[in-house]
Simulated scan of single mutants.
Amino acid sequence: MAKNIYLILLYPIMAAVIIQYFAGNFPFHFFEFPLNIILGAIWIYSVYMLLHKNNCTNNITRVLVSPETTAFSLFLFVCGTLVIGLFPQLSAIEAEQKEGILGQLGFYNFMSSWIFVSILFILLSHLAAITIRGFKSRKKKRWRFLLNHAGVWLALFGGFMGSSDFITARIPVFFDKENNEALTMEGKHFYLDYDLQLTGFDADYYQNGMPKSYVAEVKVSDRHSGNSSQISLEVNHPYEYKFGEDIYLVSYDTRSDKPQYCVLQIVRQPWKYIQLIGIIMTIAGAVGMFIGGPQKQTSKQ
């Protein structure tokens, strides 16, 4: 039975390898909000119905909740993270220029590859199945199990489904004019719904002339309401302009004696709080297991 489960799990991985080789990376942009919400709800409901109706009697349900799936999906996930750690992860444009079999298989932008998406799909489906089954259990101290598994699932699910809505773009901001045209890491133009203009800049330097720290004063003007506000940006101190959208100061004009512009990075990640909730749930479950200790098995004499 274990060999059959491993073979079943290998089928989507092999299909992903073939699609990746011939079609390139997964088209996350196609699944932007609200389509990702709809598909996510259908996905969870499908797993629930498989467990509810079949009660672990058919092959698909057995695969979803089997210990072999736990081991194999975690093994695949570790392999995927090793690829991400061992190979330089480039932007989509730079990764497309890589030649050879590794470039074709998306190793240089692996988180967006069909292979990694299929690994996450297997792992998340498995976590969803055992979490749903855990809710139906009447065993005591099951809340620790649920917090751990539901937390890990929620953190990964938020990152997986939120990839479609995740945007990283950079924009030059000038003293003499407002600007709302940014460029994404994929090389596409991205227009903000607010204008940015540099109103002040201050830099502190080491004795050798290298910048020690720098602060930019930026005016943010909402294009819809017409309201404007003044914000102060410093390296590694982002400003959250609105829910799930942060503004970072990343660089400035180093060619002029007095900088004429600075470069800001816009990071739009509306699912990050869902991931944060998942992480908090996982930590709470781990603390509960540490405080409560292992569940003792008792038997009647």
Rank of each mutant, 00 (worst) to 15 (best):
H52N: 07
M111W: 03
F72L: 05
I171W: 01
I93R: 07
A129G: 07
K212M: 12
M210S: 13
F33G: 12
P294E: 14
I13T: 01
M1L: 04
F28V: 05
S91G: 07
A150L: 05
E245K: 03
L196R: 07
Q197L: 14
F160M: 05
K212Q: 13
S112M: 01
K141G: 09
L35V: 14
F72K: 04
V17C: 03
R223E: 13
I60D: 04
V215Y: 00
I122H: 06
I167F: 14
G285M: 10
F33H: 12
L196P: 11
S213T: 05
A15I: 08
F174T: 15
F116L: 02
L146R: 00
S112E: 09
K242C: 09
E68Q: 12
M289P: 14
I101K: 03
L146F: 01
F110G: 02
L123A: 07
D257Y: 13
S221N: 02
D176M: 15
V218T: 00
E178Q: 15
Q89S: 04
G158V: 13
Q297P: 14
M289R: 12
P27Y: 00
V215G: 04
G244C: 06
V78E: 05
W114F: 02
R268W: 01
S256R: 10
T298L: 15
L76H: 08
I5H: 12
Q275A: 12
Q197A: 14
K272P: 11
L90D: 08
V263I: 11
C79Y: 02
I5M: 08
G80Q: 05
D202R: 14
Q230Y: 09
E181R: 15
Y6G: 05
V63A: 03
N58F: 07
G244E: 06
T199D: 14
Q301A: 15
D176V: 15
Y248S: 07
C262I: 11
T57H: 00
M49E: 06
N36S: 01
R62I: 11
D222K: 01
F28K: 00
G209D: 11
M210A: 13
S46L: 08
G292F: 07
G187N: 13
E99R: 10
K3L: 09
W271I: 00
P259A: 09
N58H: 05
N180R: 14
S228W: 02
Q104D: 02
W143L: 12
N148A: 08
L264H: 04
F145L: 10
F107S: 10
I19H: 01
I130A: 08
S91K: 03
A23D: 09
N179Q: 11
G244M: 04
G100Q: 00
F31S: 03
F77Y: 08
L74E: 09
V250H: 08
L198C: 09
Y273A: 05
V152Y: 11
L82K: 09
Q260N: 15
I266H: 10
G187R: 12
M161A: 15
V220L: 05
K139C: 02
W143E: 11
F190H: 09
S225T: 00
A92H: 06
D204E: 13
I13W: 00
A182F: 15
N54Y: 10
M289Q: 14
P34T: 01
C56A: 14
G285P: 13
V47W: 04
V173C: 12
N180I: 15
Y205P: 11
G209C: 08
S73R: 04
D222V: 01
P238A: 08
F28P: 05
W271N: 03
N54C: 12
V78P: 07
G226F: 00
L249Y: 09
G80R: 03
N58C: 06
F26P: 06
I283G: 01
